[in-house]
Write a protein that binds this DNA or RNA. Structure first.
Length: 493
RNA sequence: CGGGGUGUAGCGUAGCCCGGUAUCGCGCCACAUUUGGGAUGUGGAGGUCGUAGGUUCGAAUCCUGCCACCCCGACCA
């Protein structure tokens, strides 16, 4: 492990990549754009999964699993869907290899060509709706509320660890409803679940909003989203929830008998978050010393580092350390006791800072003597000496974890506030975008043409029309035409 | 797909212009001394120099082709 991470201020992109690798979250694989998620990184993802899964189940959803491969013909059934995904699909054309005759290795067996090629799912709407056709006959079968945890593949031009990988892990919810209103309510509900998860667990403040027609999901009538702001002033779409109308129902002939005896197409939604959330988590909170993890998602919340010389001293310290560990665990706090004698304390301190462990406890002979602990918090990098008698250790650490969770949320919230700028002219728009970046709250005339033009000129896109948008008379920053409320622009990941 | 760059030990690199089978650091192994912020010393292991050809007595180095990856753009969760 080499010392020193690149500085965010010098090269944000390099800082991010190095951090992901050095904190043992993930690394590149032999296949371009794919990554190996390492145990430490994966355990953060598992925590995210566990919370989200709980929230999905609390809102009435159940998990299922649909296949990785989709017949090519399925994809073309919904016109705008195929247009959106066709350019980035991996295709399976053969099912067998054989030894090359010249002994140079294995080759694709030309005899083993598939009748119909298979698509590796870029998303599962098509295969799921083709299945729903058989599952739904009556209003009694509705609503159908299903989620799946899966991997998907999108052959992107350019990839970045966690933020955009060729294969990524995600969950995709796919629901079917009897009415438009009900499907829309579901779409809103799931966006709120995502927002709540981001804010409460990731300590990541998000804007709840609606995508413009340009930015909408391929095949959706409406896309709601949560948008977050990263430390470099770029926006990151953290989750989306789509109202599919009857588009997929029509494409896959999914009809149901109504109570009144009619036959109607069902209404659908789909919603998803991915391992991209890992990228959001990393970029939102971390600093030049490494990761900063919110206690609610850290693989372990507390690490205890013993300081000792010799076996005997370690034995004495371990007694106390294990006592603390047991107390904390009883209180539901996850702890790691690192008594390896293969690394020195200083090395461990740096290591756990790099890995973002929220609280570090150092315990040495001096502490045994004085009945103290050295408690260091990762978010502020401050240390304090804690007297055993002052209060129960569980109360102390529990309170501290709470404080850290709150603290990093507040810090991110303040950052977003400082970096959300109301702009009222085109000059100002360009100036802010090039200078401090962040979210630009501006009037827009509501046309895709203006949106495209702004994107072309500045690379900024409309991240969303905030759901809490205040009605306000104004003129579009670009076209000067009338506008009735502000939208959020930003350069995005 | 356009622009730029890089492939030499697990990682990061020197050597390349000016051909003579490889430098240094981190990491790894052993031993000793160390342990309250990334220890020190001594000894050691580890490389068909991305790949295929060519030139040459001899190629990491010169020439040609290929492959891969990274970064910046356009595209996208």
């Amino acid at each position: 492990m080499s010392k020193g991470l690149p500085k965010r201020s010098e090269d944000y992109s390099l800082w991010y990549n190095e951090l992901v690798k050095r904190a043992d979250l993930a690394e590149n694989s032999p296949v371009r754009g794919c990554m190996v998620i390492k145990p430490y990184g994966y355990s953060i993802w598992e925590k995210m999964q566990a919370e989200l899964d709980r929230m999905f189940k609390e809102t009435g959803h159940t998990n299922a699993y649909f296949p990785l491969f989709i017949p090519k013909s399925f994809l073309s059934k919904e016109a705008s869907h195929v247009e959106g995904f066709a350019k980035e699909c991996a295709v399976v054309t053969h099912y067998r290899l054989k030894n090359a005759e010249d002994g140079s290795g294995v080759i694709v067996d030309p005899e083993a060509k598939l009748e119909e090629e298979l698509i590796v799912r870029p998303t599962s709407e098509t295969v799921i709706w083709s299945t729903y056709k058989n599952w739904i006959q009556s209003y009694r079968d509705l609503p159908l509320l299903v989620n799946q945890w899966a991997n998907v593949v999108r052959w992107e031009m350019r990839t970045r660890l966690f933020l955009r990988t060729t294969e990524f892990l995600w969950q995709e919810g796919h629901t079917a409803h009897a009415t438009s209103d009900e499907a829309m309510a579901e779409t809103v509900q799931m966006m709120n679940v995502y927002a709540q998860f981001a804010e409460e667990f990731m300590a990541l403040p998000v804007v709840r909003g609606r995508k413009t027609a340009n930015e909408r999901f391929a095949g959706a009538d409406d896309t709601l989203c949560i948008e977050a702001l990263m430390q470099d002033g770029k926006a990151l779409q953290a989750g989306t929830s789509h109202f599919l109308g009857q588009n997929f129902a029509k494409a896959f002939e999914v009809k149901f008998a109504t109570k009144e005896g009619g036959l109607e197409y069902v209404w659908g939604t789909s919603w998803g978050v991915s391992t991209r959330l890992m990228g959001a988590l990393i970029m939102a909170h971390s600093d030049d010393n490494g990761l900063v993890l919110p206690p609610k998602l850290a693989p372990f919340q507390v690490v205890i580092v013993p300081i000792y010389r010799g076996e005997e001293e370690l034995a004495l310290i371990s007694v106390k350390a294990k006592e603390i560990m047991a107390d904390l665990r009883k209180a539901g706090i996850s702890v790691k006791y690192d008594d390896r004698d293969t690394q020195k304390p200083g090395w461990k301190f740096a290591e756990y800072e790099l890995k973002g462990v929220p609280v570090r406890i150092a315990l040495g002979p001096r502490d045994l003597e004085n009945k103290t602990l050295e408690i260091a918090r990762r978010d502020t990098l401050t240390k304090e000496s804690f007297q055993w008698e002052d209060m129960p250790i569980t109360q102390k650490i529990g309170g501290l974890l709470e404080e850290i969770q709150q603290g990093i949320y507040q810090k991110a919230f303040d950052f977003r506030k400082e970096n959300t700028t109301e702009v009222n002219s085109w000059e100002e728009f360009k100036e802010v975008l090039e200078g401090k970046a962040g979210f630009l709250s501006a009037h827009w005339d509501g046309t895709p043409e203006t949106e495209d033009k702004i994107k072309e000129l500045t690379k900024a896109t409309i991240r969303c029309i905030p759901l809490d948008q205040v009605p306000e008379q104004g003129v579009c920053v670009y076209s000067g035409k009338p506008s009735f409320g502000r939208v959020l622009f930003a350069k995005a990941y």
